[in-house]
Design a protein around this nucleic acid. Structure first.
Length: 565
RNA sequence: GCGCUUGUGGCUCAAUUGGAUAGAGCAUCAGACUUCGGAUCUGAGGGUUAGAGGUUCGAGUCCUCUCAGGCGUACCA
């Protein structure tokens, strides 16, 4: 439920009754329990406009505030804050409603839009490395989130499958290909070997260059080799997606090569608009205020990635009809996207009302704060990292004897992968973050395991109870009040996270929720003796709604839960 | 050089986008168990938010400068 809007409505009505002719600003969550559940800070902002003392304005609002439904109490504090307390009866009823709803009372958008989320984007010439992790899981989370909120999401995996290196690779594939896929098991090694051959063997190098031209001109033999190479390479990526529990399929692939035919059209269109200029032999767009131009065609006639991105923007806005296009790409490419977005809008490839955004993220660092590399300075392969996570997760499982070997493996997968994903998503995406196995596989603090533990603990209650639950949710004390309020905030949090494209708002929320539940559970027994039946029923339902909310939240992050840890 | 970006307790991160006394976890110290799963909970110490100015009723957040780090700076993606 949109809790904030509900409270805002109450404030708005008070404004009308008080005769204040301004749109009230939104309430915010109280910073401390003593200050109530929510607070309204608008009186201070209004004081200048109305030429009145803020406390006077606050009093006027307070006098006109309806305290019979959503709210039960309001107080003025400090320079003119209005502290608001939610009505426990109302909260209880709302939690009840949420519990009965599959979507936990999270509404779907009234005006859904079509959104393109561009993420992952591996290079087919090489194996996926840790640099692809963040784009893949942040993008996937954003796509999941928007889908859940009711937008029409089109996932786009803009894989790098075009360019000069493929001439070399397919020439080498042809040379080495006795029976195909075997030699491609390790793409990294294959690339190195091909490069070695390229440097050592002049005939081979010539052939490689020749093959570049041949692919681009549509030579059937070379295209066939190329296709084979891409299929295998993409297969490796899919293995990673599968492990990561990421919702990317072959249908979501729109490779660089897909836009190949459109590249001349992009340049032509820019030329027609008159925005194109020749500079040092290259075709460029000079943007006002920018020193460096956007180069769309090289001196030798070749196209660049800016050209491809422009073609992709064109396609996504015009053909796919997207109203929001989100690029989940490394922060280092900020300037590139700023420029490309400007060109696309100024040239009319993308209509004015389409929102273009670069969802930038920072770099993954090692313990020493340096970019994450292997000992010899190479890139860390993603698949290896994920396998290691599963191995390490297995070590953390306490009572292995309670499970079959298959169950242990399954559990290790869920825990290990979940830990890696959660640790990444829990951090403000724009900052760099330090990768630390011990921290992410800990049960303490804001980690996936703490959430999993909280969830499993609640499931354990229901395994023990295992009988029908009847009755109402009755908010009995301050802790239950806070827990219930937190549960009702779920939709607000999701909406905010969707606007900002920041998964860490979801993780922060889940962490607060689970912490609150643990405290509640510690203080308020459920199945112990001497508990009134009514109270027991109410607490069981609060626990149930908590579990469902954890599960739904983690599901959006692409993290699975288990009933038993 | 120019541009972008970051700087918050010993460490790793938050801070509802300008709101009240800057919050968590780890680590340290002190508590709570015949465990509804203690993989938990309660409490304590620890901060001039890199520094200096400014705007504002109110600044970690906005502006200016300084210092320190990271990244980018036209025919790779």
């Amino acid at each position: 439920m949109k809790l904030k809007s509900q409270i805002n409505n109450v404030i708005k009505n008070a404004f009308i009754r008080a005769g204040i002719e301004h749109e009230p600003m939104s309430v915010s969550e109280a910073t401390k329990p003593e200050f109530g559940d929510y607070q309204f800070n608008g009186a201070m902002a209004l004081s200048k406009k109305l030429g009145k003392n803020p406390r006077e304005i606050a009093q006027n609002i307070l006098d006109n505030l309806d305290l019979t439904g959503v709210l039960i109490k309001a107080e003025i504090a400090g320079p003119g804050f209005i502290n608001l307390w939610l009505n426990p009866l109302w909260i209880g009823a709302q939690c009840q409603t949420a519990l009965e709803d599959e979507r936990l009372s999270v509404s779907t958008r009234e005006n859904p839009i079509r959104v393109v989320v561009d993420y992952s984007g591996p290079n087919m010439a090489k194996q996926m490395h840790v640099g692809h992790l963040r784009s893949t899981i942040i993008g996937d989370t954003l796509a999941n989130l928007l889908t859940f909120l009711g937008d029409e999401v089109i996932r786009q995996n803009h894989i790098g499958d075009w360019g000069t290196q493929f001439g070399m690779l397919i020439a080498y594939l042809e040379m080495k290909d006795e029976d195909g896929s075997v030699s491609l098991k390790d793409l990294e090694q294959f690339y190195k070997d091909a490069k070695g051959e390229f440097d050592a063997n002049a005939d081979f190098a010539n052939k490689a260059r020749e093959y570049v031209v041949k692919i681009q001109s549509g030579d059937a033999h070379c295209l066939n080799l190329w296709q084979k190479f891409i299929d295998i390479s993409l297969g490796h990526c899919e293995e990673v997606y599968e492990k990561l529990n990421v919702n990317l399929t072959r249908d979501d692939v729109r490779a660089e090569s897909f836009y190949n035919d459109d590249l001349p059209k992009v340049v032509e269109a820019l030329a027609t608009k008159g925005t194109l200029q020749e500079s040092n032999g290259a075709q460029c767009v000079f943007l006002e205020g920018d020193e460096v131009p956007v180069i769309v065609q090289k001196g030798d006639g070749g196209y660049l990635y800016a050209t491809t991105d422009l073609a992709a923007l064109w396609y996504r806005a015009q053909k796919l009809g997207a109203k929001r296009i989100s690029y989940v790409v490394d922060a280092r490419q900020g300037e590139h996207f700023k420029q490309v977005f400007r060109v696309a809008k100024e040239a009319g490839f993308v209509p004015e009302d389409v929102k273009l955004e670069h969802i930038a993220f920072g770099t993954m660092m090692d313990k020493g704060g340096k970019p994450f590399k292997t000992r010899d300075g190479g890139t860390v392969k993603l698949i290896g990292l994920l396998d290691e996570a599963v191995v390490k997760a297995k070590e953390t499982i306490n009572n292995k004897e309670d499970y079959s070997p298959e169950q242990v493996d399954e559990l290790a997968k869920i825990i290990g992968i979940g830990a890696v994903k959660y640790a990444d998503l829990a951090i403000n995406r724009e900052s760099n973050y330090i990768f630390n196995w011990d921290k992410m596989l800990s049960f303490e603090g804001n980690t996936s395991l703490y959430m999993q533990y909280g969830y499993a603990r609640i499931q354990s209650i229901f395994r023990k109870y295992n009988a029908p639950i009847e009755g109402e949710i009755i908010i009995g004390d301050a802790l239950e009040h806070r827990l219930a309020t937190m549960l009702l905030r779920f939709e607000d949090v999701l909406n905010r996270a969707a606007v900002d494209a920041s998964p860490n708002q979801i993780t922060t929320y889940l962490y607060e929720l689970v912490t609150l539940f643990m405290r509640f559970y510690e203080q308020n027994p459920i199945l112990k003796g001497g508990i009134d039946e009514e109270v027991k029923m109410s607490r069981l339902q609060l626990a149930n709604l908590t579990a469902k909310t954890i599960k739904q939240g983690l599901d959006i992050l692409g993290i699975k839960v288990v009933d038993k840890l």
